[in-house]
Design a protein around this nucleic acid. Structure first.
Length: 793
DNA sequence: TGAGCGTCAATTAGC
DNA sequence: TTGACGCTCA
């Protein structure tokens, strides 16, 4: 139970030991996949406390996800007992929330500010745009929010942004939108996720004494997944860590897969320059996978440039060869995977130790279907689906109003939920009144009789809403989170409305909100306010407030565990996990690497990131790695024939089982009905594609996949592709061949074909895309119509 | 208010 | 193909 530092040499390998015990200079731990980094971090913390007499509350350990933070806390408490609970282990964002909650008054935040999630922010931005008269169809609110987030990640205020030249309408409006958005947040006493970091910088800059307090307090700062840090996060770290003597960062540049989210690997790559005197420790010994899997992973990742050289090794030599499943199409692929999984389970593999990965969420559908059909228990690992449900958010909004009635966002969300006769017009009048009086929506509602334009019936309903919130406030002041949740559910009429509806869907929703009530009650039982040793005078927050903070920042969290099931997830979601058997599906160009990374806007860095993603996927596997691809795939409504992923080609074929392995030359041959042949050349980066003729079929497409000239798969695709594409969006062939769809009968519509359309008359085919034809009709112009609506003339 | 329909677009997703 | 969104009509 109690940790003894003298045991460390027997618990850790030499590199881990150094990482865990080195003190006196900044420390960068390059921790390869499966090298035991969490172990190192926890032992390091334990060692600081036990061997160096550092008070637990002087240590700050930052992670990216609540899950990681939770696991670390748990381990620490196991190692150190109650003392472990005094270490600040939290995400960047919770750290921000915690400090802002305490000190935010300096920058105009009350102690009860709310945290907006994306949906809240989006709604707020839409309102800002509307108020400014900006057409939200012309300028996407999402895009603006993204830019705001980006600005915050770089520490830029609206004024800073105004200094940059604007290239378009959106750019011209941006600073003002940003400014007004921030103003709206401030008025609502709210912050968004970006603010939790950005405003902390603001706080530290405005109040050096506050910064000094925390800098002095946190003698040791540890950061996990350091490759995922962005600009502000690094800035905050630098502020807190000073010269960096107490700073220890742990990360792996090969697992940097969040550049698109603002993460900047250069934080890691240039850490040494930033903090001279940095000690670098590499953890290359892997405790997870077989050597064979590591070799495969290395063959993929080693093609990236600009990486910190490292190579994983393990004592688990050899291992089972990789497997490659080549399927006709995505359904077949799912089928093959399901079959293999079923066999594994039958042979005794724990379903919880099996995972299926894919690049995009859309791919999960067919896999789920195959699993359902095959009666294989599975679950799809997603983000925070529970708390994102509309009904759950509604109830949470009521709860937020109970501690912060100024949050217009929440007020507007639930003012008519369930429907209580406060329509759009009434809401608009309330908003207008609130604006002119400088009051919040709830405050304005309380003065319903003074709002211009409301008839007495509307006044009554509006006043009742204000009263409802007033009652919830009373409950919040006197009782726990559970009581508030329950009161909100009952008094708002939500429960009644769901029951009155009675449909399966309504009952389902009711179950969800009841679950939130249950979660709040459970929270009340287990939560207790622990004063911070460094700040004993702080007064405890209301239990509801603490609960809401928790769920605002929480992901799926403690997902209710329900028995043995196979996990389905995206590659991104797979980071940090491990499984005995891993199935990596969709190993095709355009799918993985994703077309977005290959297209015009995709550069070398995008491909490199896809490659890292592949590396992450491979290194999740402990014992067995199965890769699969589909030679044809229905995507965005039409059929694509994607060559095998270049990542397959990177893996030496000796690592694969059976004849014909990846890395061989792959040749496709296809013939399209209607006499249209498509030439398809690919550069050497991907396998060689050759779509020729000579399949002997009248229509349909035949594709040969051969590996080293030995035919592996030869099959006829019964569906004829409308168009072949070389790159997304680019029509390669001039003629379009259409599937047999009703009226037109089999046949092609080459360019120049005259056709008749029931409403536009006779026109000439100019092109095709999917099952749509572009046809020029005299006097009408070019129309895109569904092929089955036209007939050849 | 909500169902129904046309249009448009189409990774990844942490807090 | 699917899904989200905004608009119209009952």
């Amino acid at each position: 139970m109690t940790f003894d530092p003298s045991q460390l040499p027997s618990l850790l390998n030499p590199e881990q030991l150094e990482a865990a015990t080195h003190v006196g200079s900044p420390l960068l731990v390059l921790a390869g996949a499966g090298s035991g980094k969490t172990r190192v971090i926890t032992y390091r913390i334990a060692n600081l406390i036990k061997a160096h007499d550092v008070a637990p509350w002087r240590i700050l350990a930052v992670t990216f996800t609540n899950k990681a933070a939770g696991e670390m806390k748990e381990r620490l408490e196991k190692l150190l007992g109650p003392e472990g609970a005094d270490v600040w282990v939290s995400t960047f964002h919770s750290t921000g929330a915690r400090i802002l909650r305490r000190e935010g008054e300096v920058i105009g935040l009350s102690k009860s500010f709310v945290i907006y999630d994306e949906a809240d922010s989006l709604a707020e931005m839409k309102r800002v745009m509307k108020a400014m008269g900006v057409d939200s169809r012309q300028i996407e609110p999402r895009r603006i929010l993204h830019r705001i987030d980006d600005a915050k990640n770089h520490g830029r205020t609206p004024d800073d942004c105004a200094k940059f030249p604007a290239y378009d309408e959106a750019g011209r409006l941006f600073p003002e939108l940003y400014r007004r958005y921030q103003k709206a947040l401030a008025a609502a006493d709210a912050v968004d996720f970006g603010d939790l970091l950005h405003r902390m910088v603001e706080l530290f800059e405005k109040a050096p004494d506050v910064l000094e307090k925390y800098r002095h307090r946190f003698r040791h700062v540890l950061v996990d997944e350091f490759q995922d840090t962005n600009g502000v996060q690094f800035r905050l770290l630098k502020m807190l860590a000073g010269d960096g003597r107490g700073l220890c960062v742990v990360g792996d540049d090969d697992q940097a897969i969040y550049r698109w989210r603002g993460a900047d690997v250069t934080n890691l790559l240039q850490f040494e320059q930033e903090f001279p005197g940095t000690r670098i420790v590499k953890l290359e010994r892997n405790y997870r996978s077989t050597q064979l899997i590591l070799d495969a992973a290395h063959s993929v990742i080693s093609r990236n440039r600009h990486r910190m050289e490292k190579k994983l090794w393990t004592e688990r030599e050899g291992g089972d060869p990789l497997e490659l499943l080549v399927a006709r199409d995505e359904r077949h692929e799912a089928q093959l995977v399901a079959d293999k999984v079923r066999i594994s389970i039958r042979d005794g593999v724990d379903p919880n130790e099996i995972a299926v990965f894919y690049r995009t969420n859309a791919q999960s559908r067919v896999i789920e279907e195959a699993f359902r059909l095959g009666r294989i228990p599975y679950h799809v690992v997603r983000g925070r689906s529970f708390y994102d449900r509309a009904e759950v958010k509604d109830l949470a909004s009521f709860m937020r109003l109970s501690i912060n009635p100024r949050s217009d966002q929440d007020a507007l969300r639930v003012i008519n939920k369930p429907a209580r006769g406060i329509g759009d017009t009434t809401v608009a009048r309330i908003e207008e009144a609130a604006r002119s009086w400088g009051l919040s929506v709830v405050e304005a509602c309380a003065r319903a009789d003074e709002i211009p334009g409301l008839n007495s019936r509307a006044q009554g309903k509006v006043r009742a809403f204000a009263q409802l919130i007033g009652e919830l406030i009373q409950v919040a002041l006197a009782e726990g989170a559970g009581a508030v949740a329950e009161a909100a559910l009952k008094k708002s009429g939500m429960e009644e409305a769901f029951l009155a509806d009675g449909s399966d869907e309504a009952i389902d929703r009711l179950d969800n909100v009841r679950e939130l009530v249950g979660a709040a009650k459970e929270w009340d039982e287990s939560w207790e306010w622990e004063p911070d040793p460094a700040d004993p005078g702080a007064e405890p927050p209301l239990p509801v407030a603490a609960f809401l903070e928790q769920i605002a920042l929480l992901g799926e969290g403690d997902e209710r565990v329900q028995g043995a099931r196979v996990s389905l997830m995206t590659l991104h979601a797979a980071k940090g996990l491990e499984f005995e058997e891993v199935f990596l599906t969709g190993m095709e160009e355009q799918v993985f690497p994703h077309s977005r990374a290959l297209g015009e806007q995709g550069g070398a860095e995008e491909i490199a990131e896809e490659r890292r993603l592949c590396y992450v996927g491979f290194t999740r596997a402990k014992r067995r790695l199965v890769l699969s691809l589909a030679t044809s795939r229905a995507l965005y409504g039409d059929l694509r024939f994607n060559p095998p992923s270049r990542f397959l080609g990177d893996v030496p074929k000796e690592l694969f089982a059976g004849v014909g392995a990846a890395g061989d030359r792959v040749r496709h041959q296809a013939r399209v009905a209607g006499g249209t042949y498509v030439e398809y050349d690919e550069d050497a980066a991907g396998p060689e594609i050759d779509l020729g003729d000579d399949d002997g079929f009248e229509d349909g497409v035949t594709i040969d996949y051969s590996f080293d000239q030995r035919p592996q798969v030869r099959q006829r695709h019964p569906v004829r592709p409308a168009v072949f594409r070389r790159r997304p969006g680019e029509v390669v062939e001039k003629a379009a061949t259409l599937p047999t769809l009703g009226m037109g009968g089999p046949g092609a519509y080459p360019i120049g074909t005259p056709v008749r359309h029931p409403s536009f008359g006779v026109g000439m085919v100019e092109g095709a895309d999917g099952d749509k034809l572009s046809i020029r009709f005299p006097g009408v112009g070019v129309k895109r119509v569904v092929a089955r609506f036209v007939q050849p003339v």
